[in-house]
Design a protein around this nucleic acid. Structure first.
Lengths: 201, 201
DNA sequence: CCTATAACTTAACATTGTTAACTTATTTAT
DNA sequence: ATAAATAAGTTAACAATGTTAAGTTATAGG
């Protein structure tokens, strides 16, 4: 019965092929400027083959974003954590978050801006990767809160404030590259530093 | 010679008609889902007439965004300012900024997210409305800095940190309406409060 | 060997942004 | 007043888009 498994493997392989072709094109040319035909050409299949693996273009985007979130999750979870200083861990995580966004700007925008527009009503459903990412942030924040380093008792509030800050600076730097920003690294550090300072009593 | 002026007036009138039809459609159905033909139908002209007033669809978007920025500028400039307390003015401005974004979410996204994607390389050119908006923020921030209320001497840094915070929370609330946010007003206030607290010594 | 099923393609549909060519009306110059 | 020029607007067409339905081909199971 190994023959059925080979088929399944081949199918999964093609799925991955489509996915990585789509990602590459989305990232380089922007979601709107990539047609199903372009993706199909790249993998040397007919356009309709894609529809055997993905419901439509939005579904394809969805899958690409899921991968991006997995990458982000992986990045955040594998940070060297200083167990004696939770605030330092939070700072590092914030830094890593922004850096991730700037390293893969199109991926970041695809995931956190474009996708909500096309796939509306995504509220962090149970078991989703997005939920895991936020849980990761929640865990780090909660350590800081539990040790009463922060004024704010509420873990949710603290986490959401932190997310707002890093999300904001990431998107501004991506979307307005020609704006007269101060030195980029200084801005990122100051945003994170300021937010953490503000969260302390 | 009043005849030429009438013509010009009529032309301007049609331009405005196109513009407001476009805005309404963009806002209700999203930039991508609005075709030139749809706009043309709405104003009862042929599609190509639009091209007599606007270079292309991106130019139309540009003009819509310019209006949005003028609205935002107007909102910010007409805030009742407490001249004895610059920090309170900053707080109010931040609040007004976020509220503006949430009141016209599609306009906000169009201006600060979609437009940079289609009209890249817009770096706050001289005399632009965007520049005026940022100058407005700069002025408020600089009062706070000059009175040495803030740790940070640099006006630019302070302003950009503040912008990051309000931009971040605005977009998150717009893009993920189903996320389990804490109470919306509390989040906005906490973001602004935290940032300002962090900016103080 | 036949049949059912899976994998894939071809052809078609309506819709998109945009351009070129055409018509019609109005202003200017002679 | 009439011819020429200009402006305003339309019709028709282009290539490209996402997606579906129908058709083809090869392979698996009985």
């Amino acid at each position: 019965m190994g023959i059925k498994e080979r088929k399944a493997r081949e199918k999964e392989q093609l799925r991955q092929q489509i996915l990585s072709a789509a990602r590459e094109l989305f990232v380089n040319e922007g979601y709107e400027n990539v047609s199903m035909r372009k993706i199909a050409n790249k993998i040397e299949y007919s356009p309709t083959t894609i529809y055997l693996h993905f419901k439509d273009k939005a579904d394809l985007l969805d899958s690409v974003c899921k991968e991006t979130l997995l990458n982000l999750l992986n990045t955040l979870e594998h940070l060297k954590r200083d167990n004696t200083d939770p605030v330092e861990t939070l700072r590092k995580s914030g830094r890593a978050y922004v850096e991730f966004g700037l390293k893969y700007p199109q991926d970041y925008k695809l995931t956190f801006v474009i996708r909500p527009q096309f796939q509306e009503g995504l509220g962090l459903q149970e078991g989703s990767v997005g939920e895991k990412v936020f849980n990761c942030l929640r865990a780090i924040v909660s350590e800081c809160v539990e040790e009463k380093i922060f004024r704010q008792v509420d873990v949710e509030t603290t986490g959401q404030v932190m997310w707002s800050a890093v999300h904001g600076v990431t998107l501004l730097l991506i979307d307005f590259p020609d704006f007269p920003w101060i030195e980029k690294d200084k801005l990122i550090d100051t945003v994170i530093h300021t937010t953490i300072a503000g969260l302390k009593a």
